[in-house]
Simulated assay, not measured.
Amino acid sequence: MEEFTHTSAPVRAAYSYCEAVTGTQARNFAYGIRLLPADKRQAMSALYAFSRRVDDIGDGLLGEAVKRDRLEGTRELLGRIRDGAVDEDDTDPVAVALADAAHRFPIPLDALDELIDGVLMDVRGETYETWDDLKVYCRCVAGAIGRLSLGVFGTLPGARGGERASEYADTLGLALQLTNILRDVREDASSGRTYLPTDDLAKFGCTDGFQRAIPPSGADFTGLVHFEVRRARGLFAEGYRLLPMLDRRSGACVAAMAGIYRRLLDRIERDPMAVLRGRVSLPGREKAYVAVRGLSGLDARHISRKAVRRRVR
């Protein structure tokens, strides 16, 4: 693995810790960021490790009050990082790594505040009446990650449409999150969570019993899934406009991560009922194949051709 030669041993150790967290807990994410140069890869690992800490608080077995307190404690830590009050002697490796990454890259740390806000929505057990309501949540927990990542990637000088790069990164985050929601229908239902908009559930007769991930008799669950897949595909098509604005390796990272989720979406579309039987996933060899396609630029060119055909139609 490439190493920094200009950082101290404590900072290198902090990054190593974050990379270990990423490698063991974020298989899809890790496949993408391994395509990046060392400084960007480690900054992305620091972002993931902090985000994972926030998610783990929200998903834990603690009571609501304790979760709120811990999330606000994490927000205070973020404030210290933002204010430059964390140095290499801090005992929290995630804070050390994120502080160093924020010093090296123009990372919009306020987006991590949005992530905390999104997890607080989970803690409160919020549900969503419409897609517009759900978009607010998705922008907090996923669109924010897209914008944070863009801070690490940067855009090519003079990139056409570069002023919209943050918007495209946000939209790509929404596409990934909606794919996650479809993939995790059963797991979320077992935890008492329903993310799909109430209006959409009602439209396909899936409201009653959905908390148990058992569509009622006569429900058009397949129609519901296909409806949400089409929505996710539209978000992917819009978000992929970001790719030409990135350098080759950053673009490859984005194409790989998004490509994995697009293939998950393909599987879900082919067999909608699979999400009720368990978590849909890709084998490691297929993820590696997607990563290679991303590095070669094949996925980006394929998506661009599809976008052109869509506009022509």
Rank of each mutant, 00 (worst) to 15 (best):
S250L: 03
G218E: 10
R270P: 04
D122E: 05
L120K: 08
D133P: 01
A165I: 03
L35V: 06
A65F: 05
L235A: 09
A307V: 11
I57L: 08
Q42C: 12
G239R: 00
L242T: 01
E163M: 07
H6I: 12
V21K: 06
F153E: 07
P283S: 12
D92T: 07
A169Q: 04
G209A: 04
Y31V: 03
V229D: 09
M121W: 09
M257A: 14
E269H: 12
E76D: 14
A288R: 12
Y31G: 06
V290T: 10
K306H: 15
P215N: 06
L276E: 00
G151V: 05
A99S: 11
V119S: 05
A307D: 15
A142I: 01
G205R: 07
M245Q: 07
R241H: 13
Q177H: 04
S8P: 02
R241V: 03
T74G: 10
A307F: 04
G234E: 08
A291Y: 01
A252F: 01
Y15H: 09
D87S: 12
L196A: 02
R310N: 13
L172S: 05
F153A: 11
P37Y: 00
L182N: 04
D266W: 04
A219Y: 05
A99L: 02
R230L: 10
R270I: 03
G58T: 02
G84Q: 07
R270Y: 08
K40D: 05
M257P: 02
A189R: 06
L78G: 08
E269Y: 08
D117G: 04
A300L: 00
I81E: 06
G143I: 02
R34F: 02
T179S: 09
L78N: 10
A46L: 09
